[in-house]
Design a binder for these strands. Sequence first.
DNA 1: TCTTTTAGTTACTTTATGTAACCTATTATA
DNA 2: TATAATAGGTTACATAAAGTAACTAAAAGA
Lengths: 104, 104
Amino acid sequence: MDTSVICPRFETAISLLSQRWTGLIIYQLLSGPQRFSHLTEVIGISGRLLSERLKNLEVQGLVTRTVYPETPVRIEYALTEKGYSLKPVMDEIQNWSQTWVDPV
Amino acid sequence: MDTSVICPRFETAISLLSQRWTGLIIYQLLSGPQRFSHLTEVIGISGRLLSERLKNLEVQGLVTRTVYPETPVRIEYALTEKGYSLKPVMDEIQNWSQTWVDPV
DNA sequence: TCTTTTAGTTACTTTATGTAACCTATTATA
DNA sequence: TATAATAGGTTACATAAAGTAACTAAAAGA
């Protein structure tokens, strides 16, 4: 009989990254705070899902939402320390992709 | 005007890991070749999806499928070099989770 | 008042995932 | 010889998530 179980913390972490778009959003925000419309364009995600994902990421403490009451209003999304600390993960994915993914 | 685009190789790599269960399957196989039924139990994935995922991973060259014609038949799934080289990615996710994910 | 701009939301369609029952091959058992 | 047990799946159907496109809110300038 085998009682091995996957580490629950690892499971939580990877379920975060296994959600479609979430990894890309974090990766994109690594290059600095960005606006909603910029994220939709660069990532190629719909407003509906981007909105949903950013709300989740905010709740989980990975992203902050800052309103600049200009005209028209400017809202910037940025990584928290918790979000930014996923950089080594992203770096390793980047690194792997350079070796193992064919260029387009 | 902004022409920034996300690196296509990175995008390919993260779309692989963004597929539900795929990351967990790879993580689990890092500890050695394993059978179909063992994977379903440890990961908590249904046979239907595990079968689908393993086929994809085989096509993408991350996993091999080996048949041992014993009684009853034994089929083992193992990582290829390409699959195993995702270990640093998994290690960083593990690492992040130890710092940022609450224990259950 | 009407238009423009950003940041979303709503309603609806399509795709992915979850669940449970079923199938096949091989050998052990009654 | 029939029956059952075991591994490794597949099939059919229900539910949940993602994609698409049209619409809305708020604020200020023409």
